[in-house]
Design a protein around this nucleic acid. Structure first.
Lengths: 173, 173
DNA sequence: TATTGTTATACTCTATAACTATA
DNA sequence: TATAGTTATAGAGTATAACAATA
């Protein structure tokens, strides 16, 4: 692949040393654009970092809820994660296939599962949480601890505000 | 693992004050999760606010570059926006159909277009920029001006850092 | 031979509708 | 009748490959 750098030959306009790979100025002024770009890149980094474990980011969400809040019915888990129940089927299939999650029928309501982590699942999520921490640390690299805390607080209050506007989990489904 | 509240009774129905629609605690601790949630909701709000104009957020990006940086070849525009050239075809089709953008052949290289805003396009983007400002203002509502500036700066430095890691526009394509 | 724009195609992700088994 | 989980299917959204016109 040739780089966009020195191709001022036939003068494809843009007069000279014009770098094309920079984000458009008009968009960089927009905080929302920056935020979505940062979170997109953070997500991509997380996906890549998780890959060697055979996991994807969406698996992480499921595991982290199970380890943090105990067994769930598939439906309830989906509701907490704002994932449709038909989508949950495949997701849990994958996690079960990896041996990380176990489907047990709930004896009190045999329509439901009682999804729980296996021992391997517990080990895996603890590894994955370390990966998440590492990636987040890399992403927030330029910020000192006080700034990171501040960022977190600001995002929390922004999110709470959106929530009050009844546009939080509801709106995403 | 009590966290499900008072779920031990056989009551199926979210008995009483147990809200399921809150984000899992383990995820709310994660700055990356917060950021992606905020930007997702901001995006959704922006899409909704743009809808009455018959526009989508991705149209906005195209228009804003054209108004800010003048006419572009379709390919170059796509490169700036990290949008594949095959995807650009349909996008520009739509904008042309709305009468906001004009496809003129570049006389110096007849393979290329010289995409430019029509007068209607100029009016529309100025409206859309007002909408963007309004939405961003609503999203950042809980933050005062100093905090907003700070947030913007932090995001900028984080993004620059990711860029230096050669994972900015490259990685998203 | 390489590049711009185009089309056809495929792939990913997710949601809707209909089915089953339980309640 | 309603609900948990499942399946089949369809719809966005976007990318890959091949092609025409032009360089």
């Amino acid at each position: 692949m040739e780089t966009e750098g020195s191709r001022s030959e036939s003068g494809r306009g843009e007069s000279g040393r014009n770098r094309v790979n920079l984000p458009p100025v008009a968009l960089v002024r927009n905080t929302g654009f920056l935020m979505s770009k940062v979170s997109q890149l953070a997500r991509e980094g997380f996906e890549r970092a998780l890959e060697p474990m055979g996991l994807q980011a969406r698996h992480y969400g499921v595991l982290v809820v199970l380890v943090g809040e105990g067994p769930h019915a598939q439906r309830d888990l989906g509701e907490k994660l704002a994932i449709d129940r038909t989508t949950m089927v495949g997701l849990v299939d994958e996690l079960e296939g990896l041996g990380l999650v176990e489907r047990r029928r709930d004896p009190e309501d045999r329509r439901r599962y009682d999804l729980a982590l296996t021992d391997a699942g517990k080990r895996t999520i603890s590894e994955a949480e370390a990966v998440a921490t590492r990636v987040q640390d890399a992403v927030l690299g330029p910020l000192d601890n006080a700034e990171r805390r501040l960022l977190h607080e600001m995002l929390t209050s922004v999110l709470r505000n959106l929530d009050d506007d009844a546009r939080f989990w509801e709106a995403s489904r």
